[in-house]
Amino acid sequence: MSSPDLSVLVLLGVLSLTALLQVGSLRLQTWQVMTLGALLVLLLGEISPQEALHQLTWTCSSFYSGPFVWGKRLTGADILPGLGAGLFQGRRIRIN
């Protein structure tokens, strides 16, 4: 049986840390966990910096990061919390 690929182990670590976002007293942000994972894969030599840049899909990256940027902006401007309160005011939300 072969040993697991290092990049798969890093991915599992990133997914675990993203789900937790807190390790002991250390509080992490999602971007910090993702950046740490990317740097770790580069430092372990799983992918070269040139290959990483070549494999980067800018359309996909902007598609996935766009909602986070807009969500942060709308939350910072107190638009999103007010919108959420207005939409769900007086409604009971059940999660089964």
Rank of each mutant, 00 (worst) to 15 (best):
Met1Ala: 15
Met1Trp: 05
Met1Arg: 11
Met1Ile: 13
Ser2Thr: 03
Ser3Asp: 01
Asp5Lys: 12
Leu6Glu: 08
Ser7His: 02
Leu9His: 08
Val10Leu: 15
Gly13Lys: 08
Gly13Arg: 12
Gly13Met: 14
Leu15Gln: 10
Leu15Trp: 05
Ser16Val: 08
Thr18Glu: 09
Ala19Ser: 08
Leu20Phe: 08
Gln22Arg: 15
Gln22Glu: 14
Val23Leu: 06
Val23Ala: 07
Leu26Ile: 06
Leu26Thr: 03
Arg27Trp: 03
Leu28Cys: 07
Leu28Lys: 02
Gln29Ser: 14
Gln29Cys: 10
Val33Gln: 09
Val33Gly: 12
Met34Ile: 12
Leu40Phe: 07
Val41Ala: 12
Leu43Asn: 07
Leu44Pro: 02
Gly45Leu: 08
Gly45Phe: 05
Ile47Trp: 01
Gln50Phe: 05
Gln50Thr: 04
Leu53Glu: 01
His54Lys: 06
Gln55Asp: 04
Thr57Lys: 15
Cys60Lys: 09
Ser65Cys: 07
Gly66Cys: 15
Gly66Arg: 15
Trp70Glu: 00
Trp70Asn: 00
Trp70Ile: 09
Gly71Ala: 13
Lys72Phe: 13
Leu74Lys: 02
Ala77Lys: 14
Ala77His: 12
Ala77Ser: 10
Gly82Val: 00
Leu83Ala: 07
Leu83Thr: 00
Ala85Ile: 11
Leu87Ile: 08
Leu87Cys: 11
Phe88Pro: 04
Gln89Asn: 08
Ile95Tyr: 01
Ile95Trp: 01
Asn96Lys: 11
